[in-house]
């Protein structure tokens, strides 16, 4: 397929079961980090070298006084033209792989020589993180090794409600369009975020800012 792969994250189907968050850890042998309860279901609070898939929780009250609770299963967008890749390539060759077949953006060990803050600040979604010891940069790999072996990313496999779906980009884009049209009947604000620019497309039913400050570019 010339246009590679995509992931659709439909927040209107998400129950925040954290299957995706844990499945990512399980597949990638990432450790659980020490966290504190600070008054939210969300933990960890942020991405790190050891957390590449993070379910964000945001609550508030609607205009009618009823509560809302939005779940945002955050991950690297695997941009069509990733600014982090451009930045890294400016410093070192082979620091980032852009897989031809899927479009996955994958960091390599060579990122340890690259100034981290420059890479982090280049990302509109604030995704890249760095291992404090090894200085290697880390983020979601789209489970490229699973894909190569005819499997789907661990997060997509785990999701019970179809909130995280993996597939050919053209099919994902079509699915997103259809779903947004359907959702608009009940949620006029429904939208697919930055669909043209990213491979990991989020569908929301409200202002993206209400979900997470970096939900949209």
């Amino acid at each position: 397929m010339p246009n590679g792969k995509s992931i659709l994250v439909d927040t209107s189907l998400c129950t925040a079961c954290r299957g995706c968050q844990v499945a990512c850890k399980q597949w990638n042998n990432l450790p659980g980090t020490k966290t504190k309860q600070i008054g939210t279901y969300q933990n960890p609070q942020d991405f790190s070298a050891f957390t590449w898939k993070l379910v964000r929780f945001a609550e508030g009250k609607n205009g009618n006084g009823k509560p809302y609770w939005y779940f945002f299963s955050d991950m690297c967008r695997h941009c069509m033209e990733p600014p982090c890749a451009e930045t890294i390539q400016g410093f070192v060759k082979g620091g980032v792989i852009r897989d031809e077949a899927t479009g996955a953006v994958v960091y390599t060990e060579k990122t340890k020589t690259v100034p981290f803050e420059k890479v982090r600040s280049s990302c509109p979604y604030d995704i890249p993180r760095q291992n404090p010891k090894t200085k290697v940069m880390a983020k979601c790999t789209m489970c490229i090794e699973r894909i190569k072996n005819n499997m789907i990313p661990a997060c997509a496999k785990s999701c019970p409600t179809g909130a995280v779906v993996f597939g050919d980009r053209s099919q994902i884009l079509a699915k997103a369009e259809k779903r947004v049209a359907e959702l608009k009947k009940s949620y006029p604000e429904a939208m697919a975020i930055n669909a043209e620019d990213v491979r990991v497309i989020y569908i929301v039913t409200d202002d993206p800012q209400k979900y997470w400050k970096h939900a949209a570019a």
Binding site: R18, V22, K25, P31, G32, T33, K34, T35, Y41, N43
Partner: peptide
């Protein structure tokens, strides 16, 4: 650790 990380206390 993966579960306690998500709901620690």
């Amino acid at each position: 650790s993966w579960l306690t990380e998500a709901q620690p206390q």
